[in-house]
Structures are given as C-alpha cells and as structure tokens.
C-alpha cells in the first residue's frame, strides 16, 4: 500500500454572491499518494481549480470551505489557523498557476520574488536567498541564471516565466506541488519543455504533484491517478490506465469520445449533448443526468454515491449500484448516438 500524503474528504466550497450560494465544489474526495501525480480533470465550471485553491485556502473573499476534511500527513489542515496555513503555503505545499504572464509581480525582480519564499520559510538572509535563487533558476533550466535573477518578469518569455514560477514553488522543497493548468497558456513545444521539467524534478525531489487540467492528453501522459470532475463533483476516480482503457462514468466515456485525437484518425466525433448545468440550478439527481443518454428516473431523482469496485476505483453512477437492474457495462454512446450526432 502506498503512503498517502494528502487526503481530501467530502470537500465542499461555496461562493456567497448577491444571487445566492454557488456550490462550486460539492463533495469532492480523493487522495494523493506520496511521490505520485494525481490529475484533476474537468471542463470549465467543473470546480477543479476551486478544489486546488480550497486545499491551500487561497479562495477569493466571498469563497469559503463549508465542509469536509483536508488531511495533510494525517492532520486536518482545515482546522489550521491562518498563521499555521502560511507555514504550509510555499513551504510544504506549493502552487503554480495557469498564466505565467500575470502570475509574477511586475515590479519586483525574479530574484526578489524567489528569495521571498526562502527568507520567509527558511530564515535565510537576503544574500543567502539570492544565491539560492540562482541555484534554483539553474535547477529549472534557465540559461545564465546570474543575469536572469536581476531581471524583471517583462524581460522573460512565457515559458521562462513558468520556469521561474516553478523555481519559486520548489524553493523550500515542498512535499506537494499543486499545478493549476500550468501549460495551458503555453505553445506545444514550450509545454513539452515544462511538462518534461516537472516530471524530471518530481523524480529527483520525490514530491507529489496535483495536476489540474482540462487536457486529457496531458493527463494520460503525466498522471498516475485521475479524478474526473463534473459540476463540482468527482464522478470517477481511478488509476490512469484503467480510466483510459475502461472508462466507466458516462461523462468520462463521452469526454473521451468527443476528443479529436492527434494520434489517430477518427471518422466522426461523438459529442455530449447539451451543456454544463448552471451553478444556480443544479439538477437534484445525478448532475450529469440531463446530458446522459442512459439516464433513468432514478438518475434524475437521486444523486448517486461514489461506488468503489474494491480496487480503489470509484465511480458516481447508478449503473454500478448493486441494485441496478440493467446490464453493468453499457456503452452509452453507441452507434445510434452517432447517427443523431
């Protein structure tokens, strides 16, 4: 059995707006094994980014974790004071973001921004921190780091900035790196550089990575485990091979069938009909029921639990309930769907 470093249990996060409560994350559970990469995949509005921000409690002011547990090495960090959380952030758990262009402060040099983590958490003085910053830039593969350390973000390309973000996140040797769509804004050849770098650093430093992305190709290649999110909930959780070989939730199946593949020719894509429900009008039953071709009355009325197959793979779909009368494995996006296309 692998050692679990982070365990998220029944996480619920809401935003309180003038129009009412938005349940952005509504019952999310997954665990992160030590040294492994877990992917959280989903489309816009699925709550994947909010989940990651909830773990570090970096939500916007009107957002609040309302329920659940986040166990970091067995301790529920949702009970931590703000001061204790600061001790974790950037130290034990670090984060990098989607937009390298705007995620660095334009008025401070690269070195100043990396040093801050070191002076804050490791008690280094400015000179030591600056020297360590140069080492870190070297670690993330930035050429002539002595020069770069004195430059401002505007002097760097997008790929370089993301490397700086990674250097900053790794400054204190974190145990977990949370990467929120770190390559989405980058070109393919630069994405390859950054993904290769993250994997290489993970192998060398032994940290766990939580990888938030909408890109199934990135998931397939970088992750060991995957949680698929839809409308604020995890609908399927399994190891990466099982997920792609034998996807079980109708949403996961639909997602894979609607993906235009760069590595194979497809005659026709099979889209999922309709669209993501509005956060103000969530369906009472299964959230995917309105778009699911296999939905029954039960699905529309009652929200299914996560059913475990005994091997740690979970799926939130009534088909996998013991009481389910129909066949267990249904290719819900079969031929007749293609005809309707």
């Amino acid at each position: 059995m692998e050692e679990t470093i982070l365990d998220v249990r029944g996480l619920r996060t809401s935003f309180f707006t003038d129009e009412g409560e938005v349940k952005a994350v509504d019952g999310v559970s997954f665990s992160v094994p030590k040294g492994k990469t877990i992917g959280i995949v989903g489309e816009s509005g699925s709550g994947k980014s909010i989940t990651s921000l909830s773990i570090l409690r970096l939500l916007a002011e009107n957002g609040k974790v309302v329920d659940g547990e986040v166990l970091f090495k067995g301790e529920n960090i949702l009970d931590y004071s703000e001061k204790q959380m600061r001790g974790l952030r950037g130290n034990k758990i670090s984060m990098i973001f989607q937009e390298p262009m705007t995620s660095l402060n334009p008025v401070f040099t690269v070195g100043q921004q990396i040093s801050e983590s070191l002076t804050t958490h490791q008690g280094m003085n400015k000179k030591q921190a600056m020297a360590k910053s140069v080492d870190l830039l070297k670690l993330v593969g930035i050429p002539s780091p002595e020069k770069r350390v004195t430059q401002y973000p505007y002097e760097l390309s997008g790929g370089m900035r993301q490397r700086v973000m990674i250097a900053m996140a790794l400054a204190c040797n974190p145990e977990i790196l949370v990467a929120d769509e770190p390559t989405t804004a980058l070109d393919v050849t630069i994405q390859a550089q950054i993904l290769g770098l993250i994997k290489d650093l993970q192998n060398r430093l032994g940290m766990s990575v939580i990888f938030i992305t909408h890109d199934l190709g990135v998931v397939a290649e970088t992750c060991d485990y995957v949680a698929v999110m839809y409308a604020g909930q995890v609908v399927e959780y399994s190891d990466v091979r099982t997920l792609f070989r034998r996807p079980r939730h109708p949403y996961t199946i639909g997602l894979l069938k609607s993906l235009p593949r760069p590595d194979a020719d497809q005659e026709k894509l099979v889209p999922i009909h309709g669209m993501v429900p509005s956060p103000f009008k969530m369906p009472t039953g299964c959230r995917f029921a309105p778009r699911c071709p296999a939905a029954t009355d039960l699905c529309r009325e009652k929200l299914p639990d996560l059913f475990d197959d005994g091997e740690g793979n979970q799926v939130r779909c009534w088909i996998y309930d013991e009481e389910w009368p129909g066949p267990k494995e249904v290719d819900v996006f079969g031929e007749e769907r293609i005809a309707k296309g």
């Binding site: 952030r89 950037g90 670090s94 705007t102 995620s103 801050e116």
Partner: peptide, 15 residues
Amino acid sequence: INQDYIRTARAKGLT
C-alpha cells in the same frame, strides 16, 4: 488585489 500575482504572493505563505 485581484491580480494573479497577488494570489502567487499569498501562495508563497507571505503575511
């Protein structure tokens, strides 16, 4: 305060 780099600064564990 709503800029990305402020979130980055908070993610570093700064006060």
